[in-house]
Amino acid sequence: MAGQPDLGRADLVAMLAQLTDRPTDLPERIGSMELAWLVHLVEQRYDRQLDLTDDQLARVRTVDDALAVFQTALTTAADG
Results as ranks from 00 to 15, higher is better:
43 E>Q: 14
57 L>N: 08
77 A>M: 05
25 D>Y: 10
47 D>F: 12
31 G>Q: 10
63 V>P: 07
78 A>S: 09
64 D>N: 15
20 T>E: 04
72 T>G: 06
27 P>R: 15
35 L>H: 01
26 L>V: 02
2 A>M: 05
33 M>Y: 14
60 V>H: 03
52 L>F: 11
13 V>G: 09
58 A>G: 09
33 M>V: 12
68 A>C: 08
25 D>I: 10
46 Y>L: 07
52 L>W: 12
35 L>E: 11
19 L>G: 02
37 W>F: 13
56 Q>D: 10
4 Q>H: 07
48 R>C: 11
35 L>K: 03
17 A>V: 04
16 L>Y: 00
4 Q>D: 01
29 R>M: 11
28 E>C: 13
65 D>A: 05
67 L>Y: 07
53 T>D: 00
41 L>M: 14
70 F>C: 06
23 P>K: 04
40 H>F: 12
28 E>S: 15
54 D>V: 14
45 R>H: 12
34 E>Y: 09
68 A>H: 11
37 W>K: 09
13 V>W: 07
62 T>S: 15
58 A>V: 03
23 P>N: 11
30 I>V: 11
9 R>N: 10
29 R>T: 09
70 F>S: 02
18 Q>C: 00
68 A>Y: 06
48 R>K: 14
80 G>H: 10
54 D>R: 13
72 T>Y: 08
73 A>C: 10
55 D>C: 09
69 V>N: 01
36 A>N: 04
78 A>N: 01
66 A>M: 01
34 E>C: 11
63 V>N: 00
26 L>R: 15
58 A>Y: 02
80 G>R: 12
77 A>D: 14
37 W>N: 04
18 Q>N: 10
45 R>A: 15
46 Y>G: 01
21 D>Q: 13
52 L>V: 05
48 R>F: 02
43 E>F: 02
74 L>C: 05
73 A>L: 08
6 D>E: 09
77 A>C: 03
23 P>V: 01
20 T>M: 04
48 R>A: 06
66 A>C: 04
45 R>E: 14
80 G>L: 10
3 G>S: 07
63 V>W: 01
36 A>L: 14
10 A>M: 02
1 M>G: 13
32 S>R: 15
74 L>A: 00
6 D>C: 07
